[in-house]
Structure formats: structure tokens, C-alpha cells
Design a protein around this nucleic acid. Structure first.
Lengths: 228, 228
DNA sequence: GCAAAAGTGTTTGCAGTACACCCATGG
DNA sequence: CCATGGGTGTACTGCAAACACTTTTGC
């Protein structure tokens, strides 16, 4: 029997949508290409899958080398197959998205400084390949997921306040949520533990600090926002 | 620049979970392999992606030739990358799932009769490759999706009755749903149009016939079942 | 004392649940 | 006229949306 990998197969890339939240903005990590095609255009970070790698291996390779990151939320998004998505030839892309806290990581520039940069998803440059499609799908997934899963905590510090979490939700969902009802829903879900202390140094009443409950009972909550 | 497809790439298979509903049972289409590996074991239908094909092309190729099917609900499920999932070598699988009405199609046997068969998802044989994982993911997705999307209609005849739809939901979700509340929710969503006539020939009161509203306003409904 | 933001509580209405009753058919 | 399943209505209840008040800080 002929080995499969000697047939002609499409190349397989793993592309990453890395979300980071700071200064009341949802941001995505983009990479400035220094080679054709799409030279000098911003694109999602990614790499070709090596024969012995799993998807997660490839994700970690990209994130470790280019960004010095590890230990973050990572989830498969979708696979993209448009025949002309890469002008060099047939390339299938398996897209993952990651949620990270930018303050925890230093962005390691690749060969050159300024080739990796955060962009607010409201002020995106024109992207190469079909990466705008991938990014749009990721944003849509994140918005749907955050309504019933505690993924918001991945984007914040270990300790965070209720108003911070509230602003995070309002930013990502691009809507306003009643802060009192929001607080009640989140607290009722038992996903948070009060850390006892308060955030000092702000202008007004110091808000309570919370941590994500690692011994979580899967006590679902549901934020009711119509995304359509 | 060297063409990408001359590098060594994993093979890329498209595997299909074809769901069909009849006789109050959710069934999946399996194929009896006539070659190694997993000779004489039941597996999901699938094919290797050809260079010029999209995923959907491959899906249609499989479904048309083996099953004589077209025009059905088809959605990408997930991509599977376990390194040892195929003993012949590295094969990535992109899984799709389809919803069809078995009464609309004749299963076209491949090279031999009895090599394609419906199995109730409650009485599955041992599957080859990692196809049990894929199937489990598909069932999970279908159960989640049917709660808020009108995909149930794909599995029924063009005209169907409310009790039929109700039984479909109870079967797929493996739970009991109050038929009166179910009816109200579905009708309130405006996804159904009464066809005016009734299903005759049953033993008791003839139930009303409905059709799926093709001019649908995306008027979401929500069946509240805790899937966890 | 005032402004601003955080914490806590209450009212109200609607949607989901749990029911009961009537209707149409076959035998 | 009875059994069986289909169609329709209603009362209750619990949650969520809307909203008001108090508390704590900086200046």
C-alpha cells in the first residue's frame, strides 16, 4: 500500500485569532507579513501543520515563539476551504481562537519589531487572505459563547471587579446591560469567589475584588441578548 | 517559489455523519468497509478531499454516488487531528453532518449490497477509526442546535403533523416535553404554516398538517432542556 | 458637601410550566 | 359509547427586566 502522504494533498495551515482585552476594547493580534503574498498586509498569525503535530501543537508553536505565551483558553473555531484563499496554491486553514490577558504576556517580535500588534476589532486594517472571514467568525463565536460560558474571565486579571467584568461584557456584546441584573446573574451562577479585598486607588467607592471559582460546579448562567 | 502541494502534507478526509429519522428513531448511516484497515467494520462514509474540491464538493460526491442524495441540510461539525486516528498514516478529518429524510432517498449500494445501512444511534456497532468520537460530537451538536433552530423539519416530510414534530424532539433529546407547551412555542415562532389539510388514515382524530415556513422571519424559539 | 461610581433591594410583568377540558376518529 | 390520541385554554409561578436607594471614596 502506498503511503498516504505521498499523494498530492492540500497544505494545511492553522490560523489563530488571538483576542486580548484592555482599555475597554476587544483587540486581536495581527502580524505584518514581510513576504509575498500580501506583503506588508496584516494577517492572522498561523503556521503550516507539521506531519507529527496536532492542531494544538501548531497553535502552541505559533504562540510560544512569536508571542511567548502559554496556558490560555484555546478552542477550535472552523475550517476554511475556499480554493483561492491562498494565491500560492491549495491551502486549507483550520482556525482556532485564543483568549488571553495581554498584561500577562510580552509580545515577542519576530524577525523585526512592530510586526506583531494589537488592533481593536472596531478599527481593523485590511487583512490578507480570507482572514477577515475567519476573524468575523471568531467574533461571532465569542459573542455567542460568552452569553452562557465563563470565558470572560480568561481576558481579565486573576482578580477583577464586577464593574470590570460588566464593562467587558458590554464591550464584547456591543450593548448595554443593566449592571444590577448582571451582577445578580453572575453571582447566582457561583462562578465567582470574593477575594475579600477591594480595588484601591480609583476615584470613587472601591469595588470588591473577585476571582474565578476554579472548583466550579457547572452552574450555567445565561445572559439574554439577541445577537441576530 | 516551490508549489505548496509538493511539500509533505497530511491527507485530508471529509467524513460524514448522515442523520435520518424514521419510526421514532434517530439513525445514522454507516458503511461496511471492505478493505483494510478496519475491514468488515462499520464506519462513517467519507472520502479524501481532491485538490480542486471544496469540503461541500466532497460531501456531495460521497452522498450522490453512494446514496443518490442531494439537496439536504449540511453543516461543518469539527476537524479531527489525532495523530493515530488512521493507522495508514497521518489523516486529518473534517467532519460534516447532514440531516435527511430517508423516505426521500434510495440508498444506492456501493460495490455490493448491504454495505450501507441505517443504525439507530441507540444500537450502534463498534465503529472503526475515531468515528465514534465524530458521531458523538455530531449528536451533541444536533441536540444543542435543535433547541433554537428549525432543523427538525429537515428530517421530516414536507408536510408533517405537530405530534410528529413533537415525537422527533422527544426522540432526539431523549426526554419528554409537554405537548401543549411545545405546540405553543413552535407556533409562536412562526416557523410553521398550516397546510389546511389533515393527516388521514390514522386511528384517532386526524392531526393538522403543517409545512415549514420558507419565507421565514428569523423568529427564534427556545426549547428549554438542560443538556448537561 | 458634592459628584461619581459601587453595592443592595424591590416591584412588576411576562414567559414557561403545569395542568384540565373538549374534539374527532376507529372499532 | 368507549378508548385513544389531537386540539385548545387557563391558572400559577418563578425569573428577569426595570427601577430607587444607600454607601464609599476624592476633591
Amino acid at each position: 500500500m502506498k503511503a498516504f502522504d505521498q499523494y498530492r494533498n492540500p497544505a494545511l495551515a492553522v490560523d489563530l485569532v488571538v483576542f486580548g482585552y484592555y482599555e475597554n476594547s476587544l483587540n486581536v493580534l495581527l502580524l505584518n507579513r514581510k513576504e509575498e503574498p500580501f506583503k506588508n498586509r496584516w494577517t492572522l498569525p498561523g503556521a503550516f501543520l507539521q506531519m507529527e503535530e496536532t492542531f494544538l501543537d501548531t497553535c502552541n508553536r505559533v504562540l510560544n515563539t512569536k508571542l511567548g505565551m502559554d496556558n490560555f483558553f484555546l478552542e477550535q473555531l472552523y475550517s476554511f476551504d475556499a480554493p483561492e484563499r491562498d494565491p500560492r496554491g491549495r491551502v486549507i486553514a483550520v482556525a482556532y481562537y485564543a483568549l488571553i490577558n495581554p498584561s500577562k504576556f510580552e509580545i515577542v517580535a519576530g524577525n523585526m519589531a512592530n510586526d506583531v500588534q494589537w488592533f481593536s476589532i472596531d478599527e481593523l486594517p485590511k487583512l490578507g487572505f480570507d482572514h477577515k472571514d475567519i476573524l468575523d467568525a471568531a467574533v461571532k463565536r465569542l459573542r455567542a459563547k460568552i452569553l452562557y460560558n465563563p470565558v470572560g474571565f480568561e481576558l481579565l486579571n486573576d482578580e477583577f471587579t464586577m464593574p470590570e467584568l460588566h464593562r467587558l461584557y458590554e464591550t464584547i456584546l456591543q450593548t448595554s446591560i443593566d449592571r444590577r441584573n448582571f451582577r445578580r446573574k453572575i453571582l447566582d451562577s457561583d462562578y465567582l469567589v470574593s477575594s475579600g479585598s477591594k480595588r484601591e486607588g480609583l476615584q470613587n467607592r472601591p469595588p470588591d475584588l473577585y476571582q474565578f471559582n476554579k472548583a466550579l460546579k457547572p452552574n450555567k448562567f445565561q445572559i439574554n441578548i439577541d445577537l441576530s
